[in-house]
Amino acid sequence: MSESKWIVKNATLDDAERWFSLTAIVQPDFCNIDLINDDNYRSAMIKNMKRGTAIYVEDYIRTDTPIIGAMTYSQNQNHISWLAVHPDYRKRGVASSLMKHMLGELANAKEIRVKTFLYDDEYGKAARNFYKKQGFVGKDILMEEEGYPHPVQVFVKLLE
């Protein structure tokens, strides 16, 4: 499937099991934090599904239609909360499709923010490269962040 053909959908509670299946697959990309059993993560994802700020792309060619990329964001704070793509579908336009959809939802925003691993952390290398290609610029470094076992960096994209 070409990268321009991905269809972004709003996640509902009916998608939760597939969403958490993707979460388990990408766990190594998030410092191996056990997000599946993290009550804060689970409740945040459910809350986003209920309010329409959880989006995903699925592989509808496969009979089991797995979610291959997912994102949550805040329309009030113009912030990407979580973004992940299944390892088998990376560098095929899935994350870009999610980003484009989300930016359309934030049409009146002046900037959008995302937190990711620090510039020298191997865990964040792919994420930082993606955000930079999308026009984000590294800004603040937060040495401690609630719930994270590592320092994070804020990336900001100014919207026109």
Rank of each mutant, 00 (worst) to 15 (best):
D64T: 05
E122R: 10
Y41D: 11
E17H: 01
M99P: 02
G93Q: 07
M45R: 09
L22K: 03
P149K: 04
S21F: 06
Q134I: 10
E146L: 14
A95L: 02
S97M: 02
N40I: 11
V114H: 05
Y89M: 09
H150Q: 07
Q27R: 13
D121T: 04
R62M: 05
D64C: 03
C31L: 12
D59Y: 04
D121S: 08
S2V: 05
G93T: 04
A24I: 08
R128A: 13
G93F: 05
W82D: 13
D29P: 00
V154P: 00
R92I: 03
L83A: 14
K132Y: 13
E146K: 15
F136P: 04
S2P: 12
R51D: 09
R18A: 12
S81E: 14
M99H: 10
V94G: 03
E144S: 13
T53N: 05
K5A: 11
F20M: 11
I141W: 09
Q75P: 06
S4A: 08
I7A: 02
L13Y: 01
E144H: 13
C31Q: 11
L142M: 15
Y60T: 02
Y89F: 13
Y148M: 15
W6F: 07
S2R: 12
N10F: 00
R62P: 00
S74H: 04
A109T: 08
Q153M: 11
A84D: 08
V57E: 02
S43T: 14
M45F: 12
W6K: 02
V94S: 01
G93Y: 03
H79T: 14
V8S: 00
M49F: 05
V114S: 01
F130G: 08
D120Y: 10
T23H: 01
G52L: 04
K133P: 06
V26G: 01
L118K: 12
N78S: 15
K115D: 11
I80M: 08
L103A: 03
H101A: 12
V156R: 09
L98Q: 04
T116S: 08
E122A: 14
D14N: 07
G138P: 15
I55M: 02
I7L: 06
Y60N: 05
N40Q: 14
V26A: 04
V94N: 04
K132G: 10
T23N: 08
E105F: 05
D38F: 07
E17R: 04
A24D: 07
I67K: 01
L103K: 03
F117D: 10
F117Q: 10
N37F: 09
D39K: 15
I112W: 11
S21E: 06
K139Q: 15
A16F: 12
D88H: 14
Y60R: 06
K115H: 15
T65D: 00
Y60F: 00
N40S: 09
W6A: 00
K132F: 13
V154K: 04
T72Q: 04
P87W: 11
D59L: 02
Q75F: 08
G135C: 12
Y119R: 07
M1N: 07
R18S: 09
A16E: 08
S4G: 07
V57S: 02
I141D: 13
G135A: 12
L83R: 10
G138Y: 13
Y41G: 03
I80W: 10
S21A: 08
